[in-house]
Design a protein around this nucleic acid. Structure first.
Lengths: 333, 333
DNA sequence: CTGTTAGCGCTTTCAC
DNA sequence: GTGAAAGCGCTAACAG
């Protein structure tokens, strides 16, 4: 592969001159530049990115680290971060943390292959984050609280969301409310669940173990969990799915069993993913300010990159969007 | 930031010994390794990725280049490529080509920041692809035919798909079939459209200009295009949306106007994205072998990376999945 | 088993 | 305006 050295030789100039000519604002005579450019074209020269990064010790690239590149939830987030990064002349790459500590994501973090990162990946440990963040390498974490220098937290109030969702159901007259859970140790799930519990206890309602089923935050998981609920034979009046994907799967399971939503059971989700407005009936859910959170994350990251002072923690609140999957309870006592 | 030099100094060993100790299979005494590891931990040393890549002149990372990181269509593709890459000990990053020639994607391609790439991004030009691909840097292109050394094409037969979709509609007795188009110069759109035309002409059907509306491959675009169709006052019997996202938008527009699917109008999509089975009515569509194509792309890329001979071009065929958005025409002559 | 040394390809002073 | 030279942080011969 042709290097700048080859180009310089072919153009009959020094290496440094070639570098200058190839770069932006170099002080080189037009004639020289011409020669160099021609040589470069002839050799099909293309700059080696690492060498440049190594020398400059910065990449003008940030990474967005996600537990799963392909989830529907992430779309808006990616969009907002990308918009922002582009507008600041930075590049964005997305890395997945599938594989945990051996993942691409962790490698990029540890080896500083980018200038900074935004992380929304439950399977990247706090330790990795804390060890990786440092002067010149800020990290914004979106899904939990991690303390440390050069670590910034942008949160969405999941406890509030879980509370609001449950309260809404209660106010519609429901008393028997199931909770379909995400992974039990996921920060998001814990938050939402604790909101659910608070709402129940504030209204002196009992939580039933059999109505707490794990759905892993996936559509398939929601489907299975709901099947289980149905098989138990004692259907709740309302189901709170800890995310929309599970709710979608659950609605499918309900439909397959001929159970009508919202007449026979009310369903509420969480996240407000794109599809939620398109299902039948459209899904009442808790809207996460995903775009806003992404923008904020990017904004803070760039501030930190520029050495400006930034607050270490931000919290967004959440709002209920009422659609057609919930209906007031008919008193059936 | 601590470098390996600092670590070596603190541990009281030579630079190369430190490197060896930090690496995998180094022949260093356990005692030395211990010392080095300790020093590294103390200094919170983390390896500089570029330096390593530069030295090794390979990254064990491949890039997946997409025109839009956030589309639902890409999920399965990402998944399959990622599975494959991981199984081969490679890392995967995703880059967006938003920004065209100035995008992150093009930069990564040009500057060889990865070992190879899989490209599904209509806005990356053939020239860039041809100039970038070279010995040791193979590129697999998924959405068009680009010729060149170290360029591999994996295609899905869009013409056939367009043909099948249209023929299906015709066989159900429909004669007045609209085509909601993607971007007119998109390779995919051109293919599908030409299949549509072939089916029409084989059945001696006339194509009507007013029933060819551009929907840009987006949900919103499909929505708008359908609104236009409705406003024209002369509704077709069936609508072929050149992708599912547009069909989803279109179904929403139809529903808003109180037009029943499939009773009043049959709707067929293209791609079989995840949501299509969840809309009401579920969407009849053309299934793209996305997972298979992704696996194949990854497979070929690795073969090329390993210097094995690979065929330059593969083509998948496509299949119709019948759901509930189409119904036989009631003869209304 | 450990240390010395020579670069990987590039940018960037600093003289000329 | 141009060239020589240093060095970014690391790996990998090659000696010892």
């Amino acid at each position: 592969m042709a290097t700048i050295k080859d180009v310089a030789k072919l153009a009959g100039v020094a290496l440094s001159t070639a570098s200058l000519a190839l770069g932006e604002g170099g002080r080189v005579s037009p004639a020289t530049r011409q020669k160099v450019l021609e040589a470069a074209r002839e050799l099909n020269y293309q700059k080696n990115g690492f060498a440049m990064d190594l020398k400059r010790s910065q990449t003008r690239t940030i990474a967005l680290i996600l537990s799963d590149l392909s989830g529907p939830y992430f779309s808006e987030l990616i969009q907002s971060v990308q918009d922002f990064a582009l507008s600041r002349g930075y590049d964005l790459i997305a890395c997945s943390s599938v594989g945990g500590q051996d993942s691409t994501a962790v490698k990029f973090l540890r080896e500083k292959r980018v200038d900074g990162a935004i992380v929304l990946a439950h399977n990247v440990s706090n330790e990795v984050l804390q060890e990786s963040a440092r002067e010149g390498f800020p990290i914004v974490v979106l899904d939990r609280v991690v303390l440390g220098d050069y670590l910034i937290n942008v949160l969405v109030d999941g406890e509030q969301g879980g509370y609001e969702a449950t309260k809404y159901l209660i106010e519609q007259g429901h008393r028997r409310i199931a909770y379909i859970s995400g992974p039990v140790n996921s920060y998001d799930n814990i938050q939402r669940y604790s909101g659910y519990q608070r709402a129940l206890s504030e209204h002196a309602l009992q939580e039933l173990k059999k109505w707490n089923v794990i759905g892993h935050f996936t559509q398939e998981g929601g489907f299975q969990a709901t099947k289980m609920l149905i098989l138990q034979g004692d259907l709740p009046e309302a189901i709170f799915y800890a995310n929309d994907e599970m709710a979608l799967g659950g609605m499918k399971a309900l439909a397959e069993s001929g159970i009508r939503i919202p007449e026979q059971v009310s369903v509420i989700g969480y996240d407000d993913i794109f599809q939620s407005q398109y299902v039948q009936p459209s899904l009442t859910t808790i809207r996460q300010p995903k775009y806003e959170a992404g923008s904020m994350a990017a904004h803070l990251l760039f501030q930190a990159l520029e050495g400006q002072f930034v607050n270490k923690s931000y919290k967004f609140s959440v709002e209920l969007v009422e659609r057609n999957s919930c209906a007031p309870s008919l008193v059936r006592k």
